[in-house]
Design a binder for these strands. Structure first.
Lengths: 227, 227
DNA sequence: CAGATATTCCATTGATCAATAGAAAGGTAT
DNA sequence: ATACCTTTCTATTGATCAATGGAATATCTG
């Protein structure tokens, strides 16, 4: 093989490695995961990922340099968002590999859930099969901005923080299905605990919006009529 | 959010980042790409990627630790292979992101191909549409082991090294379609140049076996009858 | 234009990772 | 058992990356 050939290959693999390096840090993955939910400012991202603003900004710069996300100014805020759904698919692929290849993922999840008994979880396919059944109420417990940026058809928005004050909006005779950002987001878990404490029959939906997005399932934008 | 919640999330993202770190280095991507073709020994991998044995071994350890590949001893040789096709899909996703998001990929490829004029390239869909047309001969110019580990149905195996000596096996009135490991492998490029110099009408197939594998297209194993 | 706010830049420190060469380990064959 | 071969381990050096805090920049408001 000639020198020119070698240089060509090195350049190509170097470009692919740019993608790899961008997703080689846990904090950046968390930020990317959040951006799969909705566009957000640095401040929001830092708060939701429990990062100092400076660090969050630096990691976002890194993601921007790898062009997985783009940033645009909105007044004094800087708003970051995914370049497109391919970034979301990339993260989804990485999660799938980790879930398939690392038994640690199961162990970590199971160990954690041991502390939270009585938490029934359902999958989106379960919901779809008993779709005709009308005794389910789907609740999106993420912050409202994320709901507006895309939510499951028919779901109503009650952010976890407001849940305790808005229980009267929920039908007592229904099964309440709470969902959030995905299997590793804990909003729906806490929602279900609250609901059960208040006497509702509540279950947790495993998947989140980004999982549906990566799979090409339908997502509704904007406000939806409350039931 | 409680401390336990934060520890859980950190652990989960740390696991996902293991995947990211494994693919964050150009040399490891090249090794993974090679393993998408066929299982190989450390020596073969080192030779094909122009790496010192020690470095190749170290990078393979890294891939093994991330469980994208597995190793088993065969006599004095150590044979590495992909864990399964999911590793291949992972690499395919990374390539797709790089191709979609980085104009540099196009620039590098175009600059390189400037030095190689008269190189017509066809896609696998082109081949499939004119499938009924019988005037095509598909040639797999990779090393025989890789051909045996999976090749396009109907393709014959003539490794690039043997091509000059085996021209008589090719029909002069056909269009010869050469393929190799993928768009960034240069074996088919050199094959087409050789064939053209010898008076054949030859074109390069853009995709390689790993691209078909990642897409779930049919692949034939073992020796195939020569035409 | 001054003051307030959000974000980025910069410089420093510590940590992790890559490349290399030579020694060691595991396996085969005589 | 010895010699030989392939691969891995170990240690060192240099390079890159992450975290942090404080200064600088950009925008909006009064």
């Amino acid at each position: 093989m000639s020198d020119a050939d070698r240089i060509f290959k090195d350049s190509i693999y170097e470009q692919i490695a740019r993608v790899g390096r961008a997703v080689a840090h846990p904090r950046r993955l968390e930020l990317l995961d959040l951006l799969c939910q909705a566009p957000m400012t640095v401040e929001q991202l830092a708060q939701k990922s429990a990062l100092p603003i400076g660090s969050a900004s630096q990691h976002l710069q890194h993601l921007k340099a790898a062009r997985l996300v783009i940033a645009d100014r909105q007044g004094t805020y800087m708003r970051y968002r995914l370049k497109d759904d391919l970034s979301c698919s990339l993260l989804h692929t990485l999660k799938t590999v980790a879930e398939q290849y690392y038994a640690e993922m199961r162990v970590i999840t199971e160990d954690f859930l041991m502390d939270h008994q009585n938490l029934q979880a359902v999958s989106i396919t379960d919901i779809q099969t008993r779709g005709a059944d009308d005794s389910l109420t789907l609740v999106d417990v993420r912050p409202v901005e994320e709901y507006k940026a895309g939510h499951w058809p028919g779901a109503i928005s009650i952010p976890l923080e407001a849940l305790a004050d808005r229980l009267m909006e929920l039908p007592v005779d229904h099964t309440i299905v709470a969902y959030c950002r995905g299997p590793y987001c804990l909003l729906s878990l806490h929602a279900v605990k609250t609901l059960q404490r208040e006497g509702f029959h509540a279950v947790r939906l495993i998947e989140g919006v980004s999982d549906w997005r990566a799979r090409g399932l339908p997502i509704v934008l904007g406000d939806a009529p409350l039931k």
